[in-house]
Structures are given as structure tokens and as C-alpha cells.
Amino acid sequence: MLKRGNVHPVLATVLKRLGLGLFTWLMVSVIIFASITMLPGDFTEAVLGQAATKETIVAFRKELGLDQPAIVRYGEWLLGVAQGDFGTSFSGRAASGQDRSRLVMDLVAPRLQNTLFLAGITAIIAVPLALFLGLTTALYRNSLYDRIVNAVALTTISMPEFFLAYILILLLASLWPILPSLANVNTEMALPERLIRIALPAMSLTLVIIAHMMRMTRAAVINLLALPYVEMARLKGATRTAVIMKHVLPNAWAPIATVIAFNLAYLVVGVVVVEVVFVYPGIGQLMVDAVTSRDIPVVQACALIFAVTYILLNLIADIIGIITNPRLLHPR
């Protein structure tokens, strides 16, 4: 594949996207840092209260490094991250009595694990289900089945996610109490127990994301059905299923993968409302709490994770788009 010493176009694109991703992430971190710095009030006042003396505040600020100019603090933080050090949380520092402060990593890691667990389980259910529904509605388009599936999907996507969550709690935890309404998992729990605990949040999220993916699959497939090569496939005697699976789907992956990536990213970064409803200890809640208390190191770490999630998932979608397109994979 290496022609005339050139890098294969797929690899070149991946490298280019990675570089762009890194740049995007830097921009995001600057924006987050700047916006938190510009927020009125600061961490010391929030923790020590209005009654604190000037000396305590100055001492506390010094301990946190807040006496330094913003640009220096940003630079030091960036340097730390480059070496794998995300810093120490502002909470529970010595100036507030005794030193109970924790490393940002220790705070974020278990929460991220929980989030990825919930996102992973949801994805395992939602993605195949969405693809199946999208393909079958395209295959039997304008049938009663198609209309019902579309109507239900549109209904669930049109409702706020907390509302869906409460309906599920009402039905499955209150009226017919078969599932727990609280999803307060911890690391000691066995897997089956954890799965039962997250059943309701996973269901709510599935309902939220399935419509997008299903409708994009359906639209992408239907778009291609009118093309001459699809007619040709039929005239070569292929069954409806064979036409869709062999001749349509391979050409439809690019848009479908993009929407799936977008929804998976949402599962990691955008589910704080569902976490709150089910009291689920995910990373969304952690970030919201950290923003409230101006805990800059934690906010920055979360923002970094969110940015990386988006960038990586979109990169994967791009790569899928390239490898399913022979024009790009096998240039003339």
C-alpha cells in the first residue's frame, strides 16, 4: 500500500485528525480555565465563608497557588498533565484545619469507571437495537411497523430525559417494584448486583439515544435504495435482506458511524441529569459539584476527559468512514 514512499492516505488522515484533536483539546482547556478564572467569587471564599480573616484567605490562596497569575497556573497545570499529574483537589486542604486533600486522579478515576460502565452497558443494548430497528424500518418502510417504531422513537426523544427516568421509576420501581430506583453502586458490589442497580438508568439512556441512531440508519439506507446498483442487485436475483445487508449497508456506514459516535460521547459527557435522578456516582455529578465549589483542578481534569472522549469517538467514526469507502482505502 505504500506507493512511491507516500504514507497511506488512511494513516495520513488518522495522524492529521489526531493532531487536530490535540489542538482542539488545548483550546478547550484554555476556554475552561479562562471561564472558571473569570467566574465571580473564588474557592477560598466559598470554603472559608465571609467571616474569614484576610490573613487566613491569603495563606489559603498561597497554599492553593491562587496567588500566582492565571497564565502561570495554567502553564504549571499543563506541564503536570503532560507528565501524567493532574494535581491535587482544592477540597480538604490544610488551611481548613487538617490536610485531607486528595489527588484529582483518586477522585476522578472511580467516577469515570462508573460512567464508562453505565455508558458501556447502555451502548451494548442501544447500538445493536438501533441498527436493527433502522434496518427493518428501512426494509419495511411506510408499513405499520415502520410508523409505530418511528412514532415511539420520536416520542422518547422528544421528552426530557429526567421525565423518562421518572416514568420508568414510577412503572418499574413503584407500581411494579421489580427494579431498584436508586443506582448507588460501589466497587464492592458483584457484577450482577451492579447490573440490576443500573438497569433503570441504562434503560432511560437507551430510550434517549436510540431514536437518533435508528433514524439515521433508516435514512442512510433509504437514500441508497434508489441507486442503480441496488436495482442491479435486485435484478441479479438478490433477496430483500441480501440487498440491504450486502449492497446497501456497506455503503451506509459513514453517516451511521458518525451518529453512533456522537451518541456514545453523549453517554459519557452528557448524562448528569440521569445521574442525579438515580443518584448514580458518575463523572457528571463530580464535575457539577467541582464547578459549584470552584475546584479548578477537578473541573479541568473532567473537561479533559470529556474532550478526549469526543475527539477519540469522532476519530473512530472517521476511520470507519474511510475504511468502508474503497475510493479512499484503495486509491486508483
Partner: peptide
């Protein structure tokens, strides 16, 4: 019975 279409460029599936 087989069929030869007008535009071969459009009648071949680009993915195979």
C-alpha cells in the same frame, strides 16, 4: 435472464 444497465459506473456497487 440478466440485465446490462445504461451506466456501468452507477450500476456497480462501489463497496465490492
Amino acid at each position: 435472464i440478466t440485465y446490462v444497465a445504461q451506466s456501468a459506473a452507477a450500476a456497480f456497487n462501489p463497496a465490492h
